[in-house]
Design a protein around this nucleic acid. Structure first.
Lengths: 254, 254
DNA sequence: CGCTTAGTTGACCTAGCTCAAGGACTGTGG
DNA sequence: CCACAGTCCTTGAGCTAGGTCAACTAAGCG
């Protein structure tokens, strides 16, 4: 399994058979190895499992799946969601490159939510047991992992604030501003990006209906705060959107 | 700091000056030391800080406070909440004995939410830096800590499902059933308990108004599902409440 | 005993939901 | 090339769950 592979031109290799490597990954400054020195990144590389392709609308994992791996997104986008007894879904987050999936599963050794690719994506598998073994040798890695889990907790608290306290308009502004910031952190335009999820997914995530999302987009467009063409969005007045998101701007008008 | 203390009758000792100890704590089967053998519990005891009393309506920590400790609740109840720019609060959870507070703060080295005692309570301080040092020596402790953090993530996902998808009645049933289960796990009656939080807090947590909570209580009472006198609650039809919580029962009636 | 805070109840209102119709793309098959 | 079916989105009209406002009760407390 760890034998050297024969040379195969990368254009024809089955990528999912390859072990992933943090060293060469463009996301390593955002992802698990953040802040590690080269020696420690190499040790992390030792335990990282294979890469895995996940096609659009395919599940990376389902509820109740046994827990073996965390997943770091190499490229692509995912949504994670909960299902209730009646099969109703509640989307709990949208994830992009450099973010970690699967931490919900540690507590019960099986997954508590589902993760589905919003477009053709690739993740690398991180066998959790081996990762935990590695922690005792790389304290910096352990600490960073705790930060990542804690960040997920605070992210979810922010969503609870959104769902519990905010009006539709503010929720939607928060959503746009959040996407914008995350694209900026990845070196993409903070004002011009593509929504990878449907209006329905946005509505579900924000606790609103698809119709409400559609109306909000139309209204924001009419106000001149953004341009939108299908899923292509351009933020024309980021300051206004930030003010709306912060609740500073009331915007009962018009 | 670790010198032996002179003998002082416990009735007059200032409890907050005492180091806490897991060994003698009734919560140790629910709390951080869960599953550890005696030797490891002793090592954990070495690093546990002092006990700290928190009076009703007092904050254990505030947003932006620097992060030093996690806190394990010895007795009492807390609420944790987020504040937005306008000072509006969104309660993100109610915590009781044996539960861990402060994990939100790991990611940014300062607290991201506030924790306030709902009644006179006591916690023990767990210096996080020393805890992380201990992890490399007690893998079982590390793993259990990860489970606790993961559990907090899944708990919050459940709240997101509640806030995003459920009708008022179902939210309130979920709330009651959840309290019931947690008291049961602590050896208290699952059908008869005191609400430690105001109607306003319940409403805030569930994304509803105080008036809605009041009406729901009245309605549930009229249906014979529970008795309520001020904050004393008795669940008369737990099965029905569970069905409501699960969304099996629709209860549009009456 | 008066003041304050917590909770209840009723009457009314509205943000966002539901339902319905239609438009715009995409892919498929002929 | 067009026809069609399916998906996704938009827009309008009307409805309703839960919010808002207001009045009132009851308990705690100096």
């Amino acid at each position: 399994m760890n034998q050297p592979l024969p040379y195969i031109p990368s254009s024809v290799v089955n990528v999912s058979a390859l072990k992933a490597s943090c060293t060469g990954c463009s996301m390593h400054q955002l992802c698990l190895p953040m802040g590690l020195d080269d020696a420690d990144i190499n040790r992390l590389d030792q335990i990282i499992g294979r890469r895995r392709r996940v096609l659009r609308d395919e599940n990376l994992y389902r509820m109740e799946d046994p827990f073996r791996n965390l997943y770091a997104i190499r490229f692509g986008h995912f949504k994670t969601y909960q299902l209730d007894q009646n099969g109703e879904q509640q989307i709990t987050g949208f994830q992009m490159a450099g973010e970690l999936l699967g931490m919900d599963a540690i507590s019960a050794d099986r997954h508590h939510c589902e993760a589905m690719a919003l477009e053709d994506s690739e993740v690398c598998e991180i066998p959790f047991q081996r990762l935990e073994e590695l922690f005792s040798h790389i304290p910096a890695l352990l600490h960073h992992f705790h930060r990542i889990m804690s960040q997920e907790i605070t992210r979810e608290q922010n969503v609870m604030l959104l769902l519990g306290n905010m009006r539709a308009e503010q929720r939607f502004a928060v959503f746009l501003v959040n996407l914008s910031a995350r694209y900026a952190a990845r070196g993409y335009s903070p004002t011009s990006f593509q929504l990878r999820m449907s209006r329905e997914d946005i509505g579900n995530y924000l606790g609103l209906t698809i119709e409400s999302i559609s109306r909000l987009l139309s209204r924001f467009k009419k106000q001149g705060w953004l341009k939108v063409d299908k899923r292509e969005v351009q933020l024309l007045d980021p300051a206004m959107l930030k003010a709306l998101a912060a609740g500073t701007e009331n915007c009962g008008s018009t």
